[in-house]
């Protein structure tokens, strides 16, 4: 079992009063709570803070914890003798048990030796990365999750599970999949908790997502923009040919209807190809020659409007 210094997590002295512990918890909760904080480490951090608070705010759990003395955080340590007696003869099977769980199990076991209350299993929320391709076509993926399982003494052990789940076609970033009864097991006849998978859309190298619409940068050569062209454009449903009208300017958006993302409810989104004009960075001798000739012969002035905007 790994030691966690709950006092250090909350930033309080070992002699802190309940009021001081509560105050420290509140401050950290505002800073790290995943529902209100944008801190990317918020979730992990808040879990530690909540675990520390749950143990230290309860005088009995705190007394049990204090018996452990001080260790280095993360240090493997051997639990006190009466814990081992309560839960295990050998004492070796604590390695996959969390400190908070054993303290909770130990203190609650003391009260309800006879009449054990049914306890609802814990819910778990797990982020899963999904790609645009997966939500375009729908996909089946395997998800690895570590969930608690109770041994005969009522101690939860962390056990790895794999779930085969279907990413629904038309799913969106941040949406959840609920797996009923796949969370933590219930205790004493209580119902099992649920598992929630939070779909997190990964950035795509080509497409930017805006609701159901997709945006794709479409680079054109100067002559393609001037003369018009037919170009191959990649879409999630395969390559399509797009007609570029003559005289297409940069930043113009060409709409490919219903080539965006599918929707559960209404019609599919659109794909917008956003025109960029690209130039050869190291032109060949011949290209340079042609451009030089063009520069000499052309009367085109892209900055003509500057003159009219100037105060005389």
């Amino acid at each position: 079992m790994k030691f966690i210094d709950y006092y250090k997590v909350l930033g309080v002295e070992r002699t802190a009063t309940l009021a001081e512990i509560k105050q420290a918890y509140r401050k950290l909760a505002h800073q790290y709570h995943p529902d209100v904080s944008k801190n990317p480490e918020g979730e992990e951090k808040f879990k530690e803070v909540a675990e520390a608070y749950a143990t230290l705010k309860d005088p009995e759990k705190r007394a049990e914890y204090d018996k452990l003395g001080t260790h280095q955080p993360g240090e493997d340590f051997v639990p006190p003798h009466d814990w081992q007696e309560a839960f295990h003869q050998g004492g070796a099977a604590f390695s996959d048990v969390d400190l908070a769980d054993i303290i909770a199990a130990f203190t609650s076991g003391r009260h309800q030796a006879g009449a054990r209350r049914a306890r609802h299993g814990q819910d778990f929320e797990v982020p899963i990365p999904i790609t645009l391709e997966q939500i375009y076509h729908g996909a089946e993926v395997n998800i690895d999750v570590t969930l608690p399982e109770y041994d005969q003494q009522g101690l939860p052990h962390r056990v790895p599970h794999t779930f085969k789940v279907r990413i629904p076609k038309g799913a969106t970033n941040g949406q959840r999949l609920r797996l009923p009864g796949k969370g933590g097991p219930g205790l004493n006849g209580g119902k099992a908790g649920d598992l929630y998978l939070i779909m997190q859309l990964q950035p795509h190298p080509l497409y930017r997502v805006n609701g159901k619409d997709l945006y794709l940068d479409l680079p054109l050569a100067p002559w393609e923009a001037v003369l018009g062209a037919r170009v191959q454009v990649p879409t999630l449903g395969g390559t399509v040919e797009l007609n570029i009208p003559a005289g297409t300017t940069a930043a113009k958006q060409l709409r490919l209807a219903k080539r965006g993302l599918p929707s559960a409810k209404d019609t599919a989104g659109d794909l917008f190809a956003v025109v960029r004009i690209d130039v050869p960075k190291s032109p060949t001798e011949r290209e340079r020659e042609l451009f030089t000739q063009l520069a000499a012969d052309s009367t085109f002035n892209p900055r003509a409007h500057f003159a009219s905007g100037v105060n005389k």
Partner: peptide
Amino acid sequence: NIHISETIWLN
């Protein structure tokens, strides 16, 4: 174990 589970899409 690989669990094949009922998944409910919260949409």
